[in-house]
């Protein structure tokens, strides 16, 4: 319970609003990362999560991964995605670069799933630089249709 005034919480709310404002002005930031680094900034890789009545879908924006390095695992309600963005060949001299914006390296990101899923039926598909993870919901988590009797 929070029953005293916490100035840091106020700052946090302001910070979040500013971030949203900047995102609206510059949609590129939303995709390719935020300038500010901190607990409130989005981590790599960016994800979209959606659902329908049978599945939860996680879309991961991760172009240029080494396909052998991608690891997707589910433990209880935690989805863990790890991989490596493949570096360019290493024999390029540093002074030969005109632009160097893409970056490379290993990453791990975990996500708390909103519902219980069937861990052994999870599928992952890496296509065109987007990893799509399909997580079938457990029967208990699916909505039940209730028949309405009309008298």
């Amino acid at each position: 319970m929070r029953n005293f005034w916490d100035p840091f919480r106020e700052f946090e709310a302001l910070y979040r609003e500013m971030e949203q404002l900047f995102d609206q002005v510059n949609p590129v930031r939303r995709i390719f990362g935020r300038i500010t680094d901190g607990p409130l900034s989005a981590s790599y890789p960016l994800m979209n999560v959606g659902e329908d009545k049978d599945n939860v879908y996680v879309e991961v924006l991760a172009p240029g991964l080494n396909p052998d390095s991608i690891e997707v695992s589910v433990l209880n309600d935690q989805l863990r995605i790890a991989g490596e963005k493949a570096p360019l060949k290493t024999d390029i001299r540093p002074e030969a670069f005109y632009r160097c914006e893409r970056g490379s390296g290993r990453f791990v990101r975990t996500l708390t799933l909103p519902v219980d899923v069937e861990a052994d039926k999870v599928t992952a598909d890496y296509r065109n630089g987007i990893l799509l993870v399909t997580l079938p919901k457990q029967a208990a988590a699916k909505p039940k249709q209730i028949a309405v009797k009309v008298n």
Partner: peptide, 15 residues
């Protein structure tokens, strides 16, 4: 190309 599902639970990017 278009996305698979509407990202209602978490929306961090749009293409």
């Amino acid at each position: 190309s278009t996305r698979v599902s509407e990202p209602r639970l978490l929306n961090e990017f749009a293409l």
